Measured scan of single mutants.
Amino acid sequence: VIAMPSVRKYAREKGVDIRLVQGTGKNGRVLKEDIDAFLAGGA
């Protein structure tokens, strides 16, 4: 999974398994917005 360390930390704090999140950034990078969208109700 491609993600910046700050995004990985954010996901950990929110209790999200970053491997389950679909990245929308360049080359499938997971963004902070992707974590929020995942929490809001889905992949």
Rank of each mutant, 00 (worst) to 15 (best):
A11Y: 02
G28V: 02
N27Q: 10
T24M: 05
V7M: 04
V16I: 10
A37T: 11
A11G: 03
E33A: 13
N27E: 10
K14Y: 07
V30P: 02
K9E: 15
V1I: 12
E33D: 11
P5W: 04
K26N: 10
R8I: 15
V7E: 06
D34S: 01
D34E: 00
V16T: 03
A11D: 01
G28K: 07
I2P: 07
D34A: 01
S6H: 12
R19L: 09
A3C: 09
R8N: 06
E33V: 12
S6N: 12
G15H: 08
V1N: 08
R29W: 10
G15S: 06
R8L: 14
K9M: 10
T24K: 05
M4A: 15
D17Y: 04
L31Y: 07
A40V: 11
T24R: 06
G42K: 14
G15E: 06
F38H: 08
A3S: 07
D36T: 05
I18S: 01
K9N: 09
Y10H: 10
P5R: 11
L20D: 09
V30G: 00
A40S: 13
K32L: 11
K26V: 13
L39W: 07
V1W: 04
A43R: 14
Q22K: 15
G15V: 03
K32A: 07
R8F: 12
I35A: 00
G41D: 13
D34I: 00
V30N: 00
K14C: 10
K26Q: 12
Q22Y: 09
A3Q: 06
D34L: 01
V7R: 01
G28I: 02
G25E: 02
A37V: 09
L31K: 08
A43E: 13
L20V: 10
K9V: 08
R8H: 13
G23R: 03
R29M: 15
V1G: 07
Q22V: 15
S6A: 12
E13I: 12
F38V: 08
A37M: 13
T24A: 03
A11N: 00
D36F: 03
A37D: 11
G41E: 13
K26M: 12
G15Y: 05
A37F: 10
F38S: 04
L31H: 07
A3G: 05
I18T: 03
D17A: 05
N27F: 12
M4S: 15
A3I: 09
K26L: 13
V1Y: 06
P5E: 14
G42T: 13
I18V: 05
N27P: 02
G15D: 06
D34F: 00
N27I: 05
K14L: 13
A11M: 01
K14Q: 12
A43M: 13
R29Q: 15
V7Q: 02
A3K: 05
V1E: 07
E13A: 12
F38Y: 15
K32T: 07
L20G: 06
A43F: 14
G41W: 13
K14E: 05
M4Y: 15
Q22W: 09
M4H: 15
I35T: 00
G41Y: 12
K9D: 15
V1M: 08
A43P: 14
E33N: 10
R29I: 09
L31W: 04
I18F: 03
V21Q: 01
F38E: 04
T24N: 05
G42N: 15
D17F: 04
E13D: 14
F38N: 03
A37R: 14
A43V: 14
T24V: 02
K9T: 08
I18Y: 04
Q22E: 10
R29H: 09
M4V: 12
K14D: 01
V1F: 07
N27V: 05
I2E: 09
V30M: 03
V1H: 08
R19E: 11
Q22N: 11
E13W: 08
R19K: 11
I35M: 01
A43Q: 14
N27H: 13
L31S: 09
E33K: 14
G15K: 08
L20P: 01
G41R: 13
G42A: 14
K32H: 10
I2V: 12
D17W: 04
A3Y: 03
G25F: 01
I35H: 00
V30H: 02
M4L: 15
S6V: 08
M4G: 15
E33Q: 13
P5A: 12
E13Y: 09
R19C: 08
D36H: 04
A3M: 04
V30A: 03
D34G: 00
D17V: 04
K14G: 03
G15M: 08
G42H: 14
R12H: 15
D34T: 01
G23P: 09
R19I: 07
A40L: 13
I18E: 02
V16P: 00
G41L: 14
V16N: 00
A43N: 14
A37P: 01
G15N: 09
E33S: 14
K14R: 11
G15C: 07
P5Y: 04
G15L: 06
T24Y: 03
K14T: 07
I35Y: 00
V21I: 12
A11I: 01
L20R: 11
L31E: 11
D17T: 04
S6R: 09
F38P: 01
G23T: 03
L39G: 04
R12V: 15
L20M: 14
L39C: 07
F38G: 02
D36G: 02
K32P: 05
Y10G: 05
R29F: 08
L20N: 09
A43K: 14
P5K: 12
A40Y: 11
A43L: 15
A37W: 10
V21S: 01
L20F: 10
R19S: 11
A40Q: 14
G41K: 14
L20S: 09
V7A: 06
K26P: 15
G28H: 07
K32N: 05
E13P: 00
D17I: 05
V1R: 10
A40P: 05
I2Q: 09
V30K: 03
L20W: 09
R8P: 08
G23Y: 02
V16A: 04
S6P: 06
E13L: 13
